[in-house]
C-alpha cells in the first residue's frame, strides 16, 4: 500500500469531514433547540459561497471576502428566520419539511437569477494557492490545511460555546424546556433568531471554504444537505459531539472508500469487476454505515437525553 497516498487521502477525508461538521452543526443546533427541520440549510451554504465569490472579485482578496461574507450570511439566516422559519416552529415536522423545501426552491432560484446558471470560480491569493511538502512525496495544498485548521478551531469554539457559556446553557436547556427558558426572563424569540443566524453562518462558512476548490454552484446545497442529514442521524440529532464524530467518520470513510476500494476489491475479484463494483459500493458506503448504526442504535450514537 502507498502510505503517502494514504496520508494525503486521510487529510482530504478530514477536510471533508470538517466541512460536513460545519454544515451539520448548524442543522443539529437548530434542531436541538428549535425542534426545527431545515431543508433549506444547504441553500444557505450555497449562498455563503456565492456571496463570498462575488466579494472576492469586489474586494480583490478571498480572506477579506470571507470576513465580510460571514456577517452577511448571518443576516440572510436572520431574514429567513424572521420571514419564514419563525412561522413554522409550532407546526409539525411534515410542515417543516415541506415549507423549507419550498424555501430551498426559492433560494436556489434566486441564486440562479442573481448569479447565473454557470457558477463562479473563486481565485485564491498566491500564498494560499501553493503546496507544502510535509514529507517526501506528500504535497498538501496550503489551502486544505487552512480548511482543516479553521474547521478544528470552529469546532473548539462551538464546544466552548455549548458547554461553558450562558448562551450554551440556554441552548442545552433548549426546546425541551421553552417555558423554563422564558421564565428565566430570556427573550426566546431573540434566542431562536440568534441560534438560527449562527447556524446559517456556520453553513455559510463551509460554503465559503469549499468555493475556491469546487467553485460556487447552484446545486451545491442540495448535495451537501443529505450528507449532513446522514451525519446528524448517525451522531444523534441535537448532539454537537455526535455531529463532530459522525462528520469526521463520514468524511474519512467516503474519501478513503472512493480512493482505495477498487484496489481492495481487486484482491478478491477480477480487475474488471472491481472497476464496476468499487464506485457503486463507495457511493453507497456512508448510507450502509448509517443503516448499520441505526440497526443497532435507532437514535444514533449520542441520542438526545430523554426528558
Amino acid at each position: 500500500m502507498d502510505y503517502t497516498l494514504l496520508f494525503v487521502q486521510v487529510l482530504n477525508g478530514l477536510q471533508l469531514g470538517l466541512l460536513l461538521f460545519l454544515v451539520a452543526s448548524g442543522l443539529t443546533l437548530v434542531f436541538g433547540i428549535l425542534d426545527f427541520v431545515n431543508l433549506a440549510h444547504g441553500s444557505i451554504y450555497m449562498i455563503g459561497a456565492f456571496i463570498c465569490a462575488s466579494l472576492t472579485f469586489v474586494l480583490g482578496n478571498f480572506l477579506w471576502a470571507v470576513l465580510v461574507a460571514l456577517p452577511l450570511t448571518g443576516l440572510v439566516g436572520y431574514a429567513v428566520e424572521l420571514l419564514v422559519a419563525r412561522r413554522l416552529y409550532d407546526k409539525d415536522h411534515l410542515d417543516h419539511v415541506l415549507g423549507t423545501f419550498g424555501l430551498l426552491l426559492v433560494l436556489d432560484t434566486l441564486a440562479h437569477m442573481i448569479w447565473g446558471p454557470a457558477g463562479i470560480t473563486v481565485p485564491l491569493p498566491a500564498w494560499l494557492d501553493g503546496q507544502i511538502e510535509l514529507f517526501e512525496g506528500a504535497n498538501i495544498p496550503v489551502f486544505r490545511l487552512l480548511i482543516i485548521g479553521t474547521g478544528l478551531a470552529v469546532a473548539a469554539g462551538l464546544f466552548w460555546l455549548v458547554n461553558y457559556t450562558r448562551l450554551g446553557m440556554l441552548i442545552r436547556a433548549g426546546a425541551s424546556n421553552r417555558t423554563m427558558v422564558s421564565a428565566l426572563g430570556i427573550d426566546i424569540q431573540t434566542l431562536f433568531a440568534l441560534v438560527f443566524a449562527l447556524g446559517a453562518m456556520l453553513a455559510g462558512l463551509a460554503g465559503m471554504l469549499i468555493s475556491p476548490i469546487t467553485g460556487a454552484t447552484i446545486g451545491m446545497g442540495g448535495q451537501i444537505i443529505i450528507t449532513a442529514f446522514v451525519v446528524i442521524i448517525i451522531g444523534g440529532i441535537g448532539s454537537m459531539k455526535g455531529a463532530f464524530i459522525a462528520a469526521v467518520l463520514i468524511g474519512l470513510i467516503d474519501t478513503l472508500g472512493r480512493s482505495f476500494l477498487d484496489s481492495l476489491f481487486e484482491l478478491v475479484m477480477s480487475e474488471n469487476a472491481a472497476e464496476t463494483a468499487a464506485p457503486a459500493v463507495s457511493a453507497m458506503m456512508i448510507y450502509i454505515l448509517m443503516a448499520i448504526i441505526l440497526a443497532v442504535k435507532p437514535q444514533g450514537l449520542f441520542p438526545p437525553k430523554v426528558r
Binding site: 415541506l98 415549507g99 419550498g102
Partner: peptide, 8 residues
C-alpha cells in the same frame, strides 16, 4: 417554492 410555503 412560494406556493409550497403558502400551502404549509
Amino acid at each position: 417554492g412560494l406556493m409550497l410555503i403558502g400551502l404549509v
